[in-house]
Structure formats: structure tokens, C-alpha cells
Design a protein around this nucleic acid. Structure first.
Lengths: 128, 128
DNA sequence: AATAATATACGAGCATATTCGTATAAAAAT
DNA sequence: ATTTTTATACGAATATGCTCGTATATTATT
């Protein structure tokens, strides 16, 4: 049983860059560094190095046809979010997704959010 | 703004031991090692060392009145689960808990789980 | 053409996490 | 009393993640 690419769990720094790529779309190291610099003080080569490691791990793909390589996420935000949730469910919620969901919901949840979730529950019930 | 104890994020190995402690209640290194050995091949001193580190970090408390120290979680499972969820919401869901919840729910969710979550949503709505 | 700017690659340093062996002390068994 | 078992403490080896400086190559500017 080998590990699927989408099961690879990005580290914290990697997730920061993925978040930027999901928002920006494909981008060069320079563009990514500019964006990350707005909130953190991180060196250019640090960003470069992490992207290179992510490429080795197949967390990103890159277009090397131009001098400045263009990086893009290998997996969608949805797939990655699901993978991270699956991991947390297994490690901290005994495998129970509903326990996680119920723990996530608390009195700070707004009426709008509650209604959105109700709607989703209805849709899920139709399918099954 | 200093970091609250309950904000400390346990590592993977630490979470494994916490899960055992939440299930067993206060326990000695030997007892914890016996339990963890049922699913993993981990040395006794490895478990001891991790518990010592967890004690330094205040993830566990310990009773040293007997020769074999008795360890117990510093925080409840609930508090720790909430902390881990909060962390994931910030890092992978742009701070939106409802996005996390909706991503967690999929067609593998059973009717019973759906009903449990509906019930919780109703209760939350009463409060607000 | 020479210089400056910009790109990747690479290695090394530092931090944290995980692992376990060995030393030492205390308790139990013989 | 001696030996064996059982306990903690401690240090060190290894792995991974993060950081950045330097080397080198390419492109742009003067």
C-alpha cells in the first residue's frame, strides 16, 4: 500500500506557500516572495528552497520553460483540506468525523453559518 | 500577549501518549508503554523521554510521590481538540470554521451523525 | 563590452522531534 | 547480603524542517 500524492501532509511553511498559490494562481518565486513578505520577513532564497523541496515531494508542479520557473499547486485546495482533516480526525478524534464537526461548532458560530451547514446536511441526506 | 498552556500544540508522538492518558486515566510510564506497545514498537525509554519533555512543556502533570511517577494530561481532550481545530482553521481554512465543517462533511456521513449534528445546531441557535 | 540585476542550485547552520543506550539509584527477590 | 528487577535521568545519534549565504549562470542595462 503506497502513499498517494494527495495524502502527503504539507508542513506549516509549505502550507503558507500553497495558500498563496491557491489564491494567486501559478507564480514565480519572486511573486510568491513578494506576497509572503507582506506578512512575514522571509528571505528570497528561503522561499525558493521550500518551493524546491515541495517540488521534490510533488506538492507543486513547475514550468521550467522560462528562466524564472513558474510554480503551481499539485493538488487543489479542497483535496488538501480534506487530507488535513482526515489526518486530524485519525490522530485526535478517534477516526470520528462527526466528533470533529461537533467540536468545531460552538457558540461563536453565526446564524448564517448554521444555516449553511443545515443546507449541506439536507443535501447529504438526499444523496444517501 | 503570552501563549496560554492550552494553546500549546502537541506533536504527533505527544498526541499518541495523550490519547492513551485520556483513555486510561493517570498512569505510570510502564503502563503507558505497555499500551503503546500494543500498536507500535517503541522503547520504554523513548516513552519516558517524551513524557519528560511533555512535562517540561506542561502538556502533562505528574505525581512524583512514588518512585514510579504517575502522569496525567494537563488539559482535557476537549480543550486539546479545540486547540488543534483552531490551529487548522487558521492555517488551512482562512479562519473560517464553517468552511472546515462543510469540508469535513461528505457522503460518508451517516444518517445518525447528520441527526446528531442537526441537534447540536438547534441547541446553538437557542443560545445565541 | 562591461557591469548590474536576477535566476537557480547547493550546502551548511540551527531548531525541533524522535529514538534509544547507558549510568545510576531504589526496590524486590533470592 | 547479594542479585535481579525496575525506576529516572541524561546524553547522543538521527531525522526533518526552516533559514539563509554563497556560487554560478543567465539576462538586462549601461
Amino acid at each position: 500500500m503506497s502513499r498517494d500524492k494527495s495524502d502527503i501532509k504539507p508542513t506549516e511553511a509549505e502550507l503558507t506557500l500553497l495558500n498563496i498559490l491557491w489564491k494567486m494562481g501559478p507564480a514565480t518565486v519572486r511573486q510568491i516572495h513578494e506576497t509572503v513578505s507582506q506578512t512575514q520577513k522571509t528571505g528570497y532564497t528561503t522561499v525558493l528552497k521550500i518551493l524546491q523541496i515541495m517540488h521534490e515531494k510533488s506538492l507543486v508542479i513547475r514550468d521550467e520553460s522560462n528562466r524564472a520557473h513558474v510554480y503551481a499547486p499539485a493538488n487543489s485546495e479542497m483535496v488538501t483540506q480534506s487530507s488535513l482533516l482526515k489526518d486530524l480526525v485519525l490522530k485526535a478524534f478517534g477516526g470520528s468525523t462527526s466528533k470533529l464537526v461537533m467540536r468545531a461548532l460552538d457558540n461563536s458560530t453565526s446564524k448564517e453559518e448554521i444555516e449553511d451547514i443545515r443546507q449541506l446536511l439536507n443535501e447529504l441526506e438526499q444523496q444517501s
